[in-house]
Simulated assay, not measured.
Amino acid sequence: MSNASAAARLKRFFGAGDEDAGEGEVAISVRPSHLRVAADSSAERLMEEISSFLLGNRLAVTARNLLVAHSAFSGEDLTLARRIIDRIASGEGVTQDWLDGETPIEDPAGSAKRLTEQLQTSIDGFTATTRSARDTAASYNTELAAHVNEASAAAEGADVTRIVTLAQAMLERARTLEAEMEARQAEAEELKERLARAQRDADIDHLTGLPNRRAFEALFEKNLREAQQQIDQLCVAICDIDHFKRVNDTHGHDTGDRVIRAVAETLARITDDKCHVARHGGEEFVMLFRGLSKTQAREKLDAVRENFSQRRFVNRVTDTPIGQITFSGGVADVFAYANPRDALKAADEALYVAKEQGRNCILSAG
């Protein structure tokens, strides 16, 4: 597969038309795609496209590369798909070094999560067992102490005194064991808290403080389930900072990070129990709107975009004006699609069209 043909084939996934589109909406035409397993595409065809991509770009056929290619060509990672399009269109080609840089090693099978859950279960079991043993030991020690005291008061003769002495020594050892079990229980409780904190940290994007992509998946499933149960509306939106690469190239990554944080803070201001925002990766954010129609969600997000576009940024190091920073977005009604993942793709397609139509706007998938 040549770079030019690869770009064309990938770009068809984001194809769109504007027929019968209302104001602020774009009619998305779902065309044959090599980035998704469409209804008329077989698993064999997907494998053929993945193979052509790897071999055409002289990429090693490794387990990691296969997983990365599948993620892009099946439509699971829309951000990666667009980056491949841009890379090929630039004429630079997809190299192994570039692909490794764009796709940090993750755990697609969720084995790390399973191991964490197993560890949590083991700690819970150990804590419960230790607590039970400590309580039993404490009860036993109390009873033993009462018998020893009673025997000491009534002790007569060398044999009885010896027995009492042995009992007292046994009581001391039992009390030591009780103290050790209490210490082990405290250690287990601390480990549980540290594990819970690590799990929370794993769901946070440390640059913005927003939930990360992994946390969004859980949020999406939870809100989808609740919306279905309550017969509620649910919309998803994907936003992307316009010309972000130019900001990074011109003003440096520190300034780029500041811009990302500024957009994150702006989007976070409209969040509540029924509106969630997460950093989806790079300069991209994803949002969920419960209880709002697609039009209402688009209007709410568009008002945020309009207010943000009025701000002007300055490079704090050089005092050089950065100027206007804007973002674009696409919104889709989750329940307008048989598969919730298709709603995400539709929102991403609308975002892509917003970029092509001049950026700094929010479009609805129609």
Rank of each mutant, 00 (worst) to 15 (best):
L78M: 13
R134G: 06
T103N: 14
A137M: 07
A158L: 08
G75D: 10
I163F: 00
R82E: 15
W98L: 02
L144Q: 12
G125W: 10
T136A: 10
A109K: 14
R114Y: 08
R114Q: 15
S90P: 14
R134Q: 10
R162A: 08
L166P: 02
P108G: 01
E117F: 11
Y140P: 08
N141T: 13
A146I: 02
P108H: 04
S152K: 08
T176A: 13
D97V: 11
D86I: 00
L59A: 10
V94Y: 00
I163Y: 01
N65S: 11
F126K: 01
Q118K: 12
D135T: 09
P104K: 01
S122C: 08
V148W: 13
D86F: 02
A174D: 14
S139D: 14
D124E: 10
A109S: 14
I85W: 03
T165S: 10
A174K: 09
L177V: 09
T79Y: 07
L67T: 13
A109E: 15
T130S: 09
T142F: 13
P108K: 03
S90K: 15
D159F: 01
L119W: 09
L78Y: 01
R162N: 11
P104Y: 01
D107S: 05
L177T: 11
E106C: 04
S111C: 05
T95H: 00
A60L: 09
V61C: 07
Q118F: 13
M170T: 07
D135V: 10
D100M: 09
A145G: 05
T129C: 02
A138W: 02
L59E: 04
R87Y: 02
V160N: 02
A81F: 02
T103L: 03
G75R: 10
F73Y: 15
L59D: 07
R64K: 13
V164N: 04
E178A: 11
M170I: 05
A167Q: 00
A155T: 05
L144W: 12
T129N: 05
H70L: 06
Q96G: 15
E143S: 05
T127M: 07
L59C: 10
A167M: 04
G101M: 01
D77G: 09
G110S: 07
L119Q: 14
A158K: 12
A128E: 12
R82K: 15
M170P: 03
N57R: 10
K113I: 05
R82Y: 13
R162E: 08
A81Y: 03
H70I: 04
I85Q: 01
W98M: 01
H70Y: 12
A145E: 13
R114G: 14
S111T: 08
